[in-house]
Design a protein around this nucleic acid. Sequence first.
RNA 1: GGGCUCGUAGCUCAGUUGGUCAGAGCGCGUCCCUGAUAAGGACGAGGUCGGCUGUUCGAAUCAGCCCGGGCCCA
Length: 1104
Amino acid sequence: MSAFKPVEMSETFPAMEGRVLALWKDKDVFKQSLELREGGPSWVFYEGPPTANGKPHPGHALTRVVKDLFPRYKTMRGYHVPRKAGWDTHGLPVEIEVEKELKISGKQDIEKYGVEPFVRKCMDSVFRYTNDWEEFTERLGFWLDLKDAYVTYHKPYVESVWWSLKQLHGKGLLYQGHKILPWCPRCGTALSSHEVGLGYKEVEDPSVFVTFRSYDDAKVSFLAWTTTPWTLPSNAGLAVKAEFEYSHVKVGEETLIMASALVEKVMGKIPHEVVKTEPGSALVGRKYRPLFDWWKGSDAEVAGAWKVCAAEFVTLDAGSGIVHVAPAFGADDYALGQKEGLPVIQLVDAAGKFTAECGPFAGRFVKDADNDVVKDLRGRGLLLKREGYKHDYPFCWRCSSPLIYFARAGWFIRTTREISRVIENNKTIQWLPEHIRDGRFGNFLESNIDWALSRERYWGTPLPVWVCQGCKHQEPIGSFDELKTKPNARGLDAFDKAKAKDPALNDHLRVHKPWIDEAQFDCPKCAGTMKRVSEVIDCWYDSGAMPFAQWGYPHAPGSTDKFTNAFPADFISEAIDQTRGWFYSLLAESTLLFEGPRPPHPYKTCVVLGHVCDEKGEKMSKSKGNYIDPMLILREEGADALRWFFYSSTNPWTSARFSRPNVREAQKEFLIKLRNVYSFFVIYANIDGFDPSVGLPEEDPDQTSEIKKYHRGGRPVEERALMDRWILSELHQTVNTVRQRLDDYDIFGAAGLINALVESLSNWYVQRTRERYWRSWETEDCSSEADADKLDAYWTLYESLTTIARLVAPFVPFTAEEMWQNLAVAPMAGKGIVPESVHLADYPVTDPHAVDRELADEVALVREVVSLGRNVRAAQKRKVRVPLAKLVLVLADQALIDVAQKHEEVVKDALNVKKVEYARVADQYVTYELKPNFKLIGAKYRELVPGIKKTLATANAAHLKNKIANDGFCSLTVEGKEVTLTSEEVEVTIAAKQGYAAAGSRQVVVVMDCSLTPELVEEGLAREIVSRIQKMRGEMKLRYEQRIRLALKGSVTLRAVAEKFAEYIQGETLATELAFGEAPDGWKTSEEELKEEGEAFTLAISEA
RNA sequence: GGGCUCGUAGCUCAGUUGGUCAGAGCGCGUCCCUGAUAAGGACGAGGUCGGCUGUUCGAAUCAGCCCGGGCCCA
């Protein structure tokens, strides 16, 4: 008989979600959802590959729930949305993880350990956490095709990357050059920025002011400042800022040039005199003499060296306003040198020692030589002064040696040549939030430098360039098979040999170091030996290649179709730190490689996520110890709670404060409320035998319309009760706006609307219509008006809940599924009417017919009235149980009175009053206030506005109000001018006068007659008795429809009231009889006391 | 140091193209309601809308500067 499974309120959310997961698995719902939409328009999603060498943290939870929402939504909208998973597997973090595991450190140790076993360790380590990730992904409800994931170390992926690099080489976009790297001279290795960040210490370095003699006048010098004297022999230029003013300062016989703003600070007590000033731009291009004559460059190099350049990085914070430039030892310096044609003078070797040409300094470690360099300059009169300078300086986190910034040869992608196309492409991408496009990301692109692609490491995609050992001829290689076609190709069997020794060797490693390094062939130019360069590439290039590499394009069979069908992506989403990472690598590679497709590509929309912070607003990280394991939340609170928290608490791009209490709050706010309504429906639908499938045809031949598809019974909307029409209007209005918000990628906005809908459903619709579900049926066939109305109530709530289930399915897929299974699938099973999962259903469509904006406004007013009425009751200490005789509503105009009258029954019921009266004029209760409508009069009267405001405020409000009401306008004299205001230009508001039992807002005042008559008190007492009985029923855990027998024992008054209201009391409490006197044996009894009424009685209940 | 971003009630956050008592939820206190109850409602806080200056008839909302937090970069 029961159509619905009772809702077990004691079941935890995670337990419910476990059942849903099992159902999805059992019916393979994800796969079905893809198959269902095959042939539909496709909507392309790219999964940014997470690095699977650590456990998922809360930030990944945010990323994954956002990534899941839109594909689910689009699928329900009819799109085909394949979701291929991916894993980022290369890179330094993996190597470091393995180094730690092996308790080794640095490249020398790795070489000693052996590159082959090391690389194998790296590969193993990557998937150590895969199980964690897969469990996390599934438990979160993130539907992703994990079985068919792309993996960046796999051979087809690597070869796809090779193909792309060959394309770039062919376009002249791949070249060898220099890059300034943080370098540990002891370890002989570069450090990643992450590693550099680990080792900052505060130290005192020399701060020296050095004089560079002007080329044409030995008496004039440029005063430059540096904290690294050891770089001075490698000086190649000086930098000034064109906009600054510079002074010629006479000191004795000599003239020093420095920034005017710093003269006093630098010269201090040294006697000096400013003889001339000029802008920095006037200094640009002047030549000077080097401090040391050790370096011997080519004529061309020398011609370009030792000149003054303009640079933006020059500041007035410290120093002299003139900066010493050593392109080999600073990134800014290098970039400036490239721009200005300065030579790269590098008089320091990789061990941090001065090179042989450095005379007395040759072979000395640079940091130790600082003092002697200074001494040498002083001896030659080239030093103005030396001080100490405290600052943070990076040290090697492994060996504590001071790092030096050092130019290293490497491979680069010439992004700067194509950057204008990249910028154009970027301009057409939809960024959320919008400011990323021209802000953080746009700025980053504007200051683009060539992409340093190569890494002197082991575990990565090998850079596929072979170089002739003799003539330096370069040849990029696009695949392993291509190598085989090369003249006299040899060493290609290195991997096979290794595999013969150890059959467990993974075939994908064929294209990795060290085996691939064995491959050689003959140089086509000089017949020398072509060998691969030793480097691997930046793993960011790997991930940026995923649009084509995930399909093994163009080598893999069928990959061309797969690639073109899934390019560009409609949607990607990652956290903000990916601006310089994945967002850039995707965009840059796509722009450089593909010149055909119309921008934007390879992604059209990018939702940028904020960081997940702890309750103090600090970024969560394991090292800080403020980290919550997201699996803990999933186990304790559940996936929907976690998901809803991220969707509803704030925009995804503002960093959310993540904590268990916050997640619980989101759960209480929304999920529990929704479940309560759902449970309420199921309880009474089962009691009343409401069955949505009754009368349905076995097969529905026409499943085209929303109504047919999802079945909507009951009378036409316009024939239903006001309340039903209202909630259906709210429902369909919300459906409409939620679709709009989601189409705009506005998750937070959509979640807010859904929240408001559920709030309305729970706190107003159900609250105010509960009695309709409690009534008994009157007729067999529900033909009476009362029964039809009751049936309407069920259909209305049924439609609301099943529509909400579909509406929230992309957000809280578990709760939605649970509701759908019970409300739709269970009763309709086998009738071919509803899909067997909510995620196979269509997203709800608005029925414009059901939307009634006027009614929505009306109910808003009614809710306001009720709220104010409760306010009055609280202030007057009149609880709602005691009926009051009269309520007076004072409303600003007749239209509002009409509205209130229309909804009078609801008001009476909600506030428990006998009668409602209406008044437009009620001067004894209210005061009026007049205010101009600023928006309307602002532009018209401008500076008169304050005067108008003042005049209106001080005028006789009641009088003016009447005048406006009668004539439609009023005239005022403001600052001597005549001003005529129409009724639209003046807002009349009312407020309750002090001292009355009244409360008011701008448009309505509620006045209550709070006097009590004996009749009212008696009725209140009767309701009090009912309340006590209900409470007891609850304590006895009686079924909701259980009939009972009642016995009461109390005062004469109490008995009189109970007798008078016997019918009411029995009706409300489902009592078949009401007796007075001692409780019969075996009945449950309770002593009740009504303090306010001064009554005490004994209550006894037995099941009937 | 540079870029971006944020700074609104004890906490978490809203606040539409600048228009006038600055809002919600949570927590707290008081009270109420309850045949959905691991719910719900009413009321209270008296918040210099980070600070200063400016634009404007009018600014939380625009501009400039400053202070503080976050992120990225140097």
